[in-house]
């Protein structure tokens, strides 16, 4: 179980491709900073081919700052900083895509 942290908008498509190519079943993705824009519904297609076992999260501080609170896709669970820390504990390693 790996937590993948990604902090760039979908403009950095190759970064998303590299991350998606590195996923295993039961991994989690957490979008942070400009990565939060990846949680806009318009970008659902990036994540649509993932298995159901992969969980998708986005960081609340980053969605709120960017005007995304009402615009986050239903594919994502919005989490706070405490849950961010918990995710890093629940997964055995963390891979940062930046």
């Amino acid at each position: 179980m790996t937590l993948h942290l990604l902090n760039k908008s979908p403009q950095s498509m190759s970064l998303y491709s590299n991350m998606l190519a590195s996923l295993s079943d039961n991994d989690s993705i957490l979008l942070i900073e400009d990565g939060a824009y990846g949680a806009l519904s318009a970008h659902n297609k990036i994540f649509k081919s993932l298995p159901d076992t992969v969980s998708l999260f986005v960081l609340r501080a980053d969605t709120e700052a960017r005007g995304l609170s009402e615009r986050v896709s239903a594919l994502f669970e919005v989490i706070d900083d405490n849950q961010f820390v918990e995710l890093t504990c629940q997964n055995v390693k963390v891979v940062s895509w930046y």
Binding site: N7, I32, E33, F84, V85
Partner: peptide, 12 residues
């Protein structure tokens, strides 16, 4: 921003 995210993570 990432430098500030690191701090928030540490504090949390």
């Amino acid at each position: 921003q990432s430098a500030a995210t690191a701090f928030r993570f540490a504090k949390t």
